[in-house]
Structures are given as C-alpha cells and as structure tokens.
Amino acid sequence: MRGILMDTVVRHEQARPGYPPGDLAIWIFILAELLVFAIFFAAYAFARSGQAELFNHYQATLNRDTALFNTLALLTSSYFVVRGVVAAREGNNALCARWLWAAVAMGGLFLVIKASEYADHFAAGVSLSSNTFYMFYLSLTFFHFMHVILGMVILAAVAVKAGRDGYSPDDHTGVETGASYWHMVDMVWLILFPLVYVMR
C-alpha cells in the first residue's frame, strides 16, 4: 500500500512541468513587470515613512468603497479566467471565449470605476504636484490602470481566437499566456489596495 502511494507520488513529481503555464516569454515579461511594481511599492513605503502624517491625512480623502468594488471586480475576473483556462483544456472553445469575455467585462467595470475616481480627484484640483502622497497615489494607480488596459487587450485577443475555435486540449498555450498576465495584474492590485488605501 505504502509502496503504491510512494509510486504515485514519484510519478506525480515527474509529471510536474518545470515551466509555468503559458509562454516562457510572457513570464520573463511578468517578472520584469513585478520588479517595477515592487520598486514602486517600496518607494511608496519609504517616502511615506518620512512624512507619515501627510500620507495618513490624504489617504483619508480616498474613496475606499470604490476601491473595494474594484478589488472584487479584479478577483472575479481572475476567477472567470481560471474557468476559461479549464474550458480551453477541455477543448471547449466556445465556453472558454464566454468566460474570457466575462473577465474582460469585469476589467471594463474596473476601468469605469477607477475613471470616476480620477474624475472626482481632478475636479477637486488634485494633481501629481499636489503633494507626495497624491504623486504616488496617482502614479501607482495610473500605472496599474494602464496594465489593466493591456491585460484586457491580451484577453480579448485570446477570446477572439477561442471564439474562432483556435485552441485545442493539446495546444492552448495562448490561453494560459493571457491568463498568466491577467493574474499578475490582479495580484499586483491585491498589494496596491491595502498599501495605498488601508495601511496607515
């Protein structure tokens, strides 16, 4: 019994791939992007430690509720993408496309909410030069905003190809490539949200 168990464990170990899902090139890109965000986060934290009161004061002016909805939108879209990948692995292109379009729609919701937040800030006269907190808040969130747009473009391209029955259980690297990038965009926001909106 124990022997059989060991045997399956070993076989499972051998079956595990040495590379992450998706194209290796996108992972090199993801690593580079993660490095940018890591440096940005650290810069925020250290700039904050010098002027904590200013940061706490202006952090209180942010709309935490819209940020909550945005977090939920990204989490949900990431979950949809997982379902899309599973559908692609099963060879169900139509289902895969539907899940991916749903994820793109969630990304769109994120953009709309974030844009309304920006509109409020700009109406209040906030700019990059207002103070260090707003400089970081606007820079970080806008940089992430651009990544959401890029991620949506990638997901849409994959969804279009899936809609044309372009993937198969043996060949769906494209879906995993787009999915990996999108999860990265989600993951970065999971750090950004508490760091900028909550931690004080």
Binding site: A43, M135, S139
Partner: peptide, 11 residues
C-alpha cells in the same frame, strides 16, 4: 516638476 525625480529614478 518634482515628481520626475520619482518617475525618472524608478523607471
């Protein structure tokens, strides 16, 4: 503007 010191350094 001063924010270029951050943007320039990071990127």
């Amino acid at each position: 503007p001063e924010y270029w010191q951050w943007w320039g350094s990071i990127f």
